[in-house]
């Protein structure tokens, strides 16, 4: 009897490559959510105007922040979806164990975070093009990607981290829900509850928000996100390691 004995790393690599291809429709959702976000953003953040004699100046502000927020939502939902039965059981059609399945999911989510972040950052340029051609504005601030490449890369990098953080959160929530369906109601209740309870500048949600979103030092920010995501993923892996495949 000749038995095949693959290593964990080999299998994780194979699963990762497979998932990039097999979860294709998750990217369609990304594109859709970003298009919707861009459409919303075209409404503009606000404007200011000045009038003097024959001149009239109006300045419109646009921001691609909404695209980032929508991408974060997408990342969160994608992470939850990768823990659902259909996708989780899909691994078991091929060679797998629970550790390799989780590791390849994490690699996939990291890649997805990067793609989401890159497209979200690039959407600024798409918005500029749309505004330039389709809106009645005479001057558009046309700073291209090549004028401040580092800034763009930096933006992509930090956005990737944010997306990845939300992937980690979504992944843990997904696993919890798979273990006990009641969490579908309990988790939102806890979340909304904490917002109302003792909220203000000292409330839990505010503190968590500040902890991650108001950090000004890049190294500290990276440390925070990486450590938090790792903890979340380790919890999820620990919880799902005994999970059985049920149809």
């Amino acid at each position: 009897m000749s038995l095949v004995n693959p290593s964990l790393i080999q299998i994780v690599k194979k699963q990762y490559v497979y998932k990039l291809r097999a979860y294709m429709d998750l990217y369609t959702r990304l594109v859709l959510s970003q298009i919707v976000a861009i459409l919303f953003s075209l409404n503009g953040l606000g404007m200011m105007g000045a009038r003097g004699g024959v001149f009239e100046v109006s300045v419109h502000f646009y921001s691609a922040d909404l695209v980032v927020i929508f991408s974060i939502l997408w990342a969160f939902i994608t992470a939850i979806l990768t823990t659902t039965k259909a996708i989780r059981n899909g691994d078991f059609l091929f060679v797998t164990n629970r550790v390799s399945s989780n590791l390849s999911n994490i690699l996939f989510l990291l890649t997805a975070s990067f793609i989401g972040a890159a497209t979200a950052m690039m959407s600024t340029y798409l918005m500029k093009v749309i505004i330039y051609y389709f809106m009645d504005h005479h001057y558009v601030d046309t700073q291209g990607p090549m004028e401040a490449p580092l800034e763009l890369l930096f933006g992509i990098f930090t956005t990737t981290l944010y997306l990845f953080l939300f992937c980690a959160l979504g992944y843990l929530i997904g696993v919890l829900v798979q273990l006990y369906k009641g969490f579908i109601f309990i988790l939102p209740a806890i979340f909304i509850g904490t917002i109302f309870l003792r909220e203000g500048n000292t409330g839990l949600v505010t503190s968590v928000f500040k902890f991650f979103f108001m950090e000004t030092s890049l190294p500290i920010f990276i440390t925070k996100v990486v450590i938090t995501s790792c903890l979340l993923f380790i919890c999820a892996m620990g919880l799902s390691n005994r999970m059985e495949v049920n149809q």
């Binding site: 693959p6 964990l8 299998i11 164990n97």
Partner: peptide, 9 residues
């Protein structure tokens, strides 16, 4: 259970 060798074969 959770065995790559068994799963591969």
């Amino acid at each position: 259970f959770n065995n790559l060798m068994a799963s591969a074969n």
